[in-house]
Amino acid sequence: MNRQRGVSLIELLISSLIVVMVLVVGANAWVYGMKLSVAQYKTSVASQIARADVERAKIVGFANLPLGTIAGDSQSATFNGAVEYFDKNGVAQGNSTGAYLSLQRKIVDAPITVSGTTYTLNGFSKRTITTTVKDPTNNTVVLVMGTVLAKDGL
């Protein structure tokens, strides 16, 4: 009987060890799963607001989007839009407080026809639009979407 009691003790110890290991691995897996879930949700919302922003730019159109600042070599111009902030539902909010995501649109025009300190677009100018969505809590880029507009194009 004493020998059988000893076996039970060892069995109990091994079982406890397995339980602890399973709990540790399980906890980490749960945390990782939660991070994946959050990343999935963030990517999904970011994708929606980025696509919507590019579509808005397309609606404004080649001719009506704001002009930018001429580069030093006079070959291109860049417009950096204001940073916009969004909550967890992808709804725009007025400031950065508690924001879930931030978005900034950039427009690069080239080639351009420079006249003094201003410039105009010509028939073969391209307007490259990129929309960058970031996580404002750590300023990491979630995703970037971009397209090109041309005169009389899509």
Partner: peptide, 22 residues
């Protein structure tokens, strides 16, 4: 997200060719 981005890039290709033709 990649699929959405790819469609925008495909459209960019069309406009890029348009500007080149011009």
């Amino acid at each position: 997200a990649n699929s959405e981005a790819a469609l925008l890039v495909a459209e960019a290709g069309l406009n890029d060719e348009l500007a080149l033709i011009a």
